[in-house]
Design a protein around this nucleic acid. Structure first.
Length: 312
DNA sequence: ACTATTTCCTGGATGC
DNA sequence: TGCATCCAGGAAATAG
């Protein structure tokens, strides 16, 4: 499942491959789930936009878009006023959404409009850059045709992923980046919280980007049990936890992330961090430090792994 | 203002 | 072999 290190890896791979490319047309599936913003709005913002940059915010992949407008330029669309909105045929390749985009393009806007396309991969989401003739996979929910001739596709079997847009390029990803937060700020985040520290780490409104794997791995390295109430931790323990969080995330990024289920990065390569997991997915196996069997418990519906001896 | 629980999804694993 | 059931989990929605 893509967490911060996987998303970082994917965003970097995408940046390398599509920065500077222009979205010529867009196809969006109509299945319930993936589209967080209305299809017409997503298409309007994407079509004819140049991808100026791709970066990560928390677990979100953010595409910075720019649209240049020549004053008085003719609109690319002809069919006006028809109330046909975002109709999608079964075969993704046949129909582009252009109605809303045509409208948007017609109205006078300042030159160089900035916007953002935001992708959350959920559990099983993938972004693939491929040739148009590549077979369209089952569970493909979006196809962006690029001026380079390639396509950028969003595939997500479980549909926990989300696509949205920010018109003012002001997307708010929630909490603070764990790799940027300082110690005092980190301590303040958890002060007075009675929730288990594991749950607090997963709360994207506090810290953004930490998911189940890296929460467990960080807590192991810090010697803290996942069920410990955040408010009962000392400053020293929280300080150590912050160091552990940063360490784990940085090591994982360096290895290209984990890849224990569906995650494959933008180039189709898998990460290697799963080889470094010390507790996650190791229930019953010996702790790498003390040989005690790793325990698995469920906290707030999430499986949580820890060493009963090393973690207090 | 917090915290805990439920819901959304499909494919792969498991069980009988 | 086939079919039913369970499980994975991020985050929004709901409930307390």
């Amino acid at each position: 499942m893509p967490e911060l290190p996987e998303v970082e890896t994917i965003a970097r791979g995408l940046a390398r491959r599509v920065t500077g490319d222009v979205v010529e047309s867009v196809w969006l599936g109509q299945k319930k789930g993936p589209l967080k913003s209305p299809a017409s709005e997503i298409a309007a913002i994407l079509e004819h936009s140049r991808i100026a940059a791709v970066h990560r915010m928390g677990k979100h992949i953010v595409f910075d878009l720019e649209q240049d407008h020549v004053a008085g330029a003719p609109s690319p669309a002809k069919g006006r006023g028809r109330n046909r909105k975002t109709k999608n045929s079964e075969a993704p390749s046949t129909q582009a959404l252009s109605e809303a985009q045509a409208k948007a393009g017609r109205s006078a806007r300042p030159t160089n409009t900035k916007a953002q396309w935001i992708v959350h991969l959920g559990m099983t989401g993938r972004l693939q850059v491929c040739e148009p003739q590549t077979e369209v996979e089952k569970h493909t929910h979006a196809i962006l045709r690029l001026s380079s001739g390639r396509e950028l596709r969003f595939v997500d079997p479980r549909r926990f992923g989300r696509l949205s847009v920010a018109r003012a390029a002001d997307f708010d990803a929630g909490g603070i980046e764990p790799l940027e937060i300082d110690r005092d700020h980190f301590l303040a985040l958890f002060r007075g919280r009675k929730t288990p520290i594991k749950s607090a780490l997963l709360n994207q409104k506090l810290l953004r980007g930490v998911g189940n794997i890296y929460a467990d791995e960080s807590l192991f390295r810090a010697g803290i049990r996942p069920r410990r109430r955040a408010s009962t931790l000392t400053r020293e323990q929280l300080g150590k936890l912050l160091v552990s969080v940063k360490e784990v995330l940085q090591e994982a990024i360096a290895l290209g992330g984990s890849s224990i289920s569906d995650y494959v990065d933008a180039d189709g390569e898998e990460g290697f961090f799963q080889l470094q997991h010390r507790v996650y997915g190791r229930e019953g196996e010996p702790c790498l430090v003390c040989k005690t069997a790793v325990k698995r418990v469920v906290i707030a519906g999430r499986s949580s792994h820890y060493c009963p001896k090393c973690q207090k």
